[in-house]
Amino acid sequence: MTDQANHVLTEAPGPKSSAPDEDAIISAIATVFDPEIPVNIYELGLIYAIDLHEDGRVGIEMTLTAPNCPSAQELPEQVRDAVSKVDGVSGASVEIVWEPPWDMSRMSDDARLALNMF
């Protein structure tokens, strides 16, 4: 009688799930500009939150400079489209939030410089 070796069966590793790269998401968002202001919406401080999920979904909370912004329909769609094109993103959702209200203090130094607001 011969001894059989004990074998542990393991599954071959599949593709790893991992959240998309935050810098790539920010770069994609920075391609979206408010048509009335020559600064991208990230530098304007309109992005309040970026939630990256391990399955590739990205959730974004953003605001607008004013509730009656004429670009209220287009900007969220442009953000969703830009983020959806980033490698590793399986889906993107954009939610408009109004709290806290946007004000100029949320703008980056680059945005202030571009708009001559120092």
Rank of each mutant, 00 (worst) to 15 (best):
E95Q: 11
E61V: 01
V39A: 12
A66K: 07
F33G: 06
E77D: 06
A92R: 04
G56I: 02
D51Q: 15
I96Y: 12
T63I: 04
A49P: 01
D81P: 06
P76L: 13
P20V: 15
Q73T: 15
A49H: 09
D55T: 06
G91R: 15
M104T: 12
M62S: 01
W102N: 01
S71Y: 02
I29D: 00
S90M: 12
I47T: 14
M107I: 04
S27Y: 10
R80I: 05
P70N: 06
E77S: 01
T65L: 09
S90H: 00
A30E: 10
Y42N: 06
I26C: 06
L75R: 00
V94H: 04
W102D: 06
L46D: 03
A82F: 11
L52R: 11
V32M: 05
P38I: 00
R106H: 10
G56W: 01
G59Y: 00
S105D: 15
V79T: 03
D51Y: 07
A49G: 03
C69L: 13
K85R: 01
I37N: 08
Y42K: 02
I50T: 07
R80N: 10
N68D: 09
P76R: 12
Q78L: 01
Q73F: 02
E77L: 08
I41L: 09
N40M: 13
A72M: 14
I26D: 08
D81C: 01
L44V: 06
Q73W: 05
G91A: 14
N40L: 11
T31N: 05
E22N: 03
P35R: 05
G59S: 04
A72Y: 09
P20D: 15
G45E: 00
M107E: 08
E22D: 14
V39W: 05
I41G: 02
V89K: 14
I37C: 06
P20T: 10
A72H: 11
P70D: 02
W98G: 11
L64K: 08
P35W: 02
P35T: 05
Q73V: 04
A24G: 08
L46Y: 11
V83I: 15
E95T: 14
P67T: 09
V58D: 07
Q73N: 11
E22G: 09
E77F: 00
V58E: 13
Q73S: 05
S71H: 01
I25H: 12
R106C: 05
D81S: 12
G88R: 12
E99Q: 13
I50M: 04
P70C: 07
V83C: 15
E36I: 00
